[in-house]
Design a protein around this nucleic acid. Structure first.
Length: 548
RNA sequence: GCGCCUGUAGCUCAGCUGGAUAGAGCAACUGCCUUCUAAGCAGUAGGCCACAGGUUCGAAUCCUGUCAGGCGCGCCA
């Protein structure tokens, strides 16, 4: 739909000798009275051509060579050109959808460009919680959308396994272990207090027995820390599987960056470029030379690297790997880091426009309408696995994807567990399940739904049927917008709209009728709808159950 | 104090990178199950797009200011 229209407009622009050819903006009008698809090019050209928009539109329309696919082309309002398609054109698209013709499901805007998306990257000191889940859902869906739009996407998780956090994890487990074995041991003040620490201590007892009993942390701390850390990483891996998002292509270890000397190398590279200086016994990165408002310490006066130092190394590593676009999905509370990372990019001579941060706002967890305060230290946070068990992975992901990433989100445990119509995911999944139910019903009546590909689609004549087809043809336009804007939630909204039109159609018209020709045609339409529903749900990481 | 995000129906939020008469879900009222799944459908009602200016053919959308909420501003991680 879009491709054919854009092609027609481009051809017309060329034949009018308008060059360079301006970008052809296409939009799908809200109301059907404005046609099936519209363009604003004429209005956009008004200024540079110094002509009235409607005049340009007229010339443009006159110059469209082949208008056989259009029912009508009208100029409206200040200079819109509204296109309507013939019924036969629309009908023909149904078959291409059933056959999953990629050219009408996707816009290949990525052209193979390499994209790295880093998301989740939770510290390996405990299980994932509800806050991480939003980043996981958004990152996962974004990757799928970009991938299906023709980008070469790599998914990455950065593990902060070098700092004191891992040590603190070890100390927490160590203390709990000693306590359980009856040895008096003070729990570290900044230790992690979740139930999982108890579990780890128990696991340590059953695995190592009393091997560490009564020994000092200096003696056995490293062993316990790295043991705990590996288990936490495994736990996070399990959570990711449980949540139903794709596995990461790369798990990058901060510690390994240090071990390979990359942190030191990155800093000396910066020093060679003249962006490093010494002051007050510390080593500084002159980030104010770029977009930052403050210079940043990279090596403290006690000789230790700051967290930012390894971040420099990590992002240099990303740059060196040669991606066209580097995306970081961060919690919104880290927004203050954007300028300094941008500065790093620029310091290494890269255009920071290839770097893009998606900020994911906090999840406001509610229970009985009241805020449910989470604190990892207090140990009362709600884990991702708890939520998956309580709410379900599909619902959780879908709800996280019904808002744009940078808006705040209320997640009321009572509301989302109610299994009521407040769960938009059911609405969409139900449409898919209904179609399967129809197909099943057809089979029991001896009709092979698969044969519907050959249906005589001229039997489709209802306005609702054409609304459905047009909505299906809008899918690649929505996908393209979602990919360009890095906004997965657009797909979520589209799905709800498509499901809505289908539910209405279902209620008003029988698919399986006494008329074999009509039945076959409507089955074909159902198959096409199912293709889009399941395709979009898959991109969002949500399942498309056959039965509900 | 400075910076970032947000402000749209009673509530939760969309609004397609500046387009045509502002949308959805929930909540509230009205109807619809001997017919492919009622987790559904049809309808009613609900708005000074926080406020004030500006930019232009055209603004919920872009710019400036004000107000309100959230977050961030360490030789922490």
């Amino acid at each position: 739909m879009k491709k054919d229209t854009v092609h027609a407009i481009r051809t017309a622009l060329e034949s009018l000798g308008i060059s360079p050819c301006p970008p052809v903006d296409i939009e799908i009008p809200k109301g059907e009275s404005h046609g099936d698809i519209a363009t604003t090019v004429a209005m956009g050209l008004a200024r540079s051509l110094k002509k009235a928009p409607r005049k340009i539109a007229e010339e443009l329309v006159g110059a469209i060579p082949d208008r056989s696919i259009f029912e009508s082309i009208e100029i409206a309002g200040p200079g819109f050109i509204n296109f309507s398609f013939t019924k036969d054109y629309l009908r023909a698209m149904v078959k291409r959808l059933i056959l999953r013709d990629r050219s009408i499901l996707r816009e290949e805007i990525g052209q193979g460009r390499k994209v790295l998306v880093e998301y989740v990257s939770a510290n390996p000191t405990g299980p994932l919680h509800i806050g991480h889940a939003r980043g996981a859902a958004v990152g996962n869906a974004l990757c799928s959308i970009l991938e299906e739009s023709g980008y070469a996407v790599e998914r990455e998780y950065y593990i902060n396994d070098a700092g004191r956090q891992v040590k603190m994890l070890g100390m927490s487990v160590y203390a709990k272990y000693q306590q359980m074995l009856g040895v008096e041991c003070e729990f570290p003040e900044d230790g992690y207090r979740g139930d999982y620490i108890d579990d780890e201590a128990k696991a340590l007892i059953s695995g190592a027995g009393e091997k560490y009993k009564g020994r000092s942390f200096d003696e056995c701390g490293d062993e316990i820390s790295s043991w705990s850390y590996r288990r936490m990483l495994a736990l996070i891996g399990k959570d990711i599987v449980l949540f139903g998002i794709r596995d990461f292509d790369h798990w990058i270890s901060e510690k390994e960056l240090y071990d390979r000397g990359e942190v030191g190398q990155a800093l000396s590279a910066l020093r060679d470029l003249g962006h490093i200086y010494d002051k007050d016994g510390a080593v500084w990165f002159r980030s104010t030379a770029f977009t930052d408002d403050k210079d940043r310490v990279v090596i403290k006066s006690d000789g230790a690297f700051t967290y930012f130092a390894s971040d420099i190394a990590y992002h240099k590593d990303k740059l060196d790997r040669g991606y066209d676009i580097i995306v970081d999905v961060w919690g919104a509370d880290h927004h203050g880091y954007i300028p300094r990372i941008e500065s790093v990019m620029q310091a290494f001579g890269y255009d920071s426009s290839k770097f893009r941060v998606i900020l994911v706002q906090m999840v406001n967890l509610l229970k009985h309408g009241e805020p449910f305060q989470m604190s990892k230290r207090a140990g009362n946070f709600v884990t991702l696995s708890d939520v998956v068990e309580l709410v379900g992975a599909d619902t959780t992901k879908f709800i996280f994807l019904t808002r744009k990433a940078d808006s705040h989100l209320d997640f009321d445990l009572d509301v989302v567990t109610a299994q009521s119509s407040e769960n938009p995911v059911f609405y969409v999944q139900y449409a898919n399940a209904r179609i399967n139910s129809i197909l099943e019903n057809a089979r029991t009546k001896g009709i092979d739904p698969g044969a519907a590909v050959d249906a005589d689609l001229s039997a489709l004549e209802l306005a609702e049927e054409f609304s459905l087809i047009k909505k299906l043809l809008a899918y690649p336009v929505v996908l393209e917008g979602a990919a360009r804007a890095f906004e997965p939630h657009r797909v979520t909204y589209y799905l709800q709209e498509l499901a809505g039109i289908f539910h209405s159609y279902y209620h008003h018209h029988k698919v399986i009728t006494d008329d074999p020709r009509l039945t076959k045609a409507r089955l074909a339409l159902c198959l096409a709808i199912r293709v889009v529903l399941s395709d979009a749900l898959t991109l969002l990481g949500v399942t498309a159950p056959e039965k509900m």
